[in-house]
Computed example of a mutant assay.
Amino acid sequence: MKKEEIDYLKIEGMFAGATAEVRKFAIQLRANTTESENKLWDYLKTKPNGLKFRRQHPFNLYILDFYCHKLRLAIEIDGGYHFTRLQQEKDRDRTLEISKYKVDVIRFTDIEVIDDYPNVIDKIDSVIKERLKTSNL
């Protein structure tokens, strides 16, 4: 089967074929979250609009900061090292790879989550409502 013929949605469900090593690393990350991840998790764990989010979710070769499988939505929080050109290229490639699984990624910076929390929540809620409307869930 040619690479472009792969049905990415059939690869290991919500984990998209994540290996045991990736899953193990996700557990480590859950034990060492950042201030901004903790702050956003305080909101997402309340199941906004009745939707379950997972934190530090293993997904293929990656670990998503937050993931809602029902909406196929990942939320990423970028710390300072994400502002280097090399890391921005890696993030772009990572987002492209994740999008092959029909997962959308929205990104916020640490600073946005800490200093502009109400607007971050408003944007997440807006994306959720739009996706619920267009996906007929």
Results as ranks from 00 to 15, higher is better:
residue 24 K to L: 15
residue 24 K to S: 15
residue 25 F to Q: 15
residue 25 F to W: 15
residue 25 F to E: 15
residue 26 A to R: 13
residue 26 A to G: 15
residue 27 I to H: 15
residue 28 Q to E: 15
residue 29 L to S: 05
residue 29 L to N: 13
residue 30 R to C: 11
residue 31 A to C: 13
residue 31 A to D: 15
residue 31 A to E: 15
residue 33 T to L: 11
residue 34 T to W: 08
residue 34 T to N: 09
residue 37 E to T: 06
residue 38 N to C: 11
residue 38 N to R: 07
residue 38 N to Y: 10
residue 39 K to S: 11
residue 39 K to E: 14
residue 39 K to I: 13
residue 40 L to Y: 07
residue 40 L to G: 01
residue 40 L to V: 03
residue 40 L to Q: 06
residue 40 L to R: 00
residue 40 L to H: 09
residue 41 W to F: 09
residue 41 W to E: 02
residue 41 W to T: 01
residue 42 D to V: 04
residue 42 D to M: 12
residue 42 D to L: 13
residue 44 L to Q: 04
residue 44 L to A: 04
residue 45 K to F: 11
residue 46 T to H: 09
residue 47 K to L: 11
residue 47 K to F: 13
residue 47 K to H: 11
residue 49 N to S: 11
residue 49 N to H: 12
residue 49 N to R: 10
residue 50 G to F: 12
residue 50 G to W: 12
residue 50 G to Y: 05
residue 51 L to F: 15
residue 52 K to C: 14
residue 52 K to T: 14
residue 52 K to N: 10
residue 53 F to T: 05
residue 53 F to W: 14
residue 54 R to I: 09
residue 55 R to I: 07
residue 55 R to L: 07
residue 55 R to K: 14
residue 56 Q to T: 04
residue 57 H to Y: 13
residue 59 F to E: 01
residue 59 F to Y: 06
residue 59 F to D: 00
residue 62 Y to M: 08
residue 62 Y to D: 03
residue 62 Y to P: 01
residue 62 Y to L: 07
residue 63 I to P: 01
residue 64 L to F: 11
residue 65 D to G: 00
residue 65 D to T: 03
residue 66 F to Q: 01
residue 67 Y to S: 00
residue 68 C to I: 05
residue 68 C to K: 01
residue 69 H to P: 12
residue 71 L to F: 06
residue 71 L to V: 04
residue 71 L to A: 02
residue 71 L to P: 01
residue 71 L to N: 00
residue 72 R to E: 10
residue 72 R to T: 02
residue 73 L to H: 01
residue 74 A to C: 04
residue 74 A to V: 07
residue 75 I to R: 04
residue 76 E to F: 03
residue 76 E to G: 10
residue 77 I to V: 06
residue 78 D to F: 04
residue 79 G to R: 06
residue 79 G to S: 09
residue 80 G to T: 07
residue 80 G to V: 07
residue 81 Y to V: 08
residue 81 Y to T: 08
residue 81 Y to M: 08
residue 81 Y to G: 09
residue 82 H to M: 05
residue 84 T to Y: 06
residue 84 T to I: 05
residue 85 R to D: 14
residue 87 Q to N: 11
residue 88 Q to D: 09
residue 88 Q to M: 10
residue 89 E to M: 08
residue 89 E to T: 04
residue 89 E to V: 04
residue 90 K to V: 03
residue 90 K to M: 09
residue 91 D to V: 02
residue 92 R to K: 14
residue 94 R to C: 02
residue 95 T to M: 02
residue 96 L to C: 07
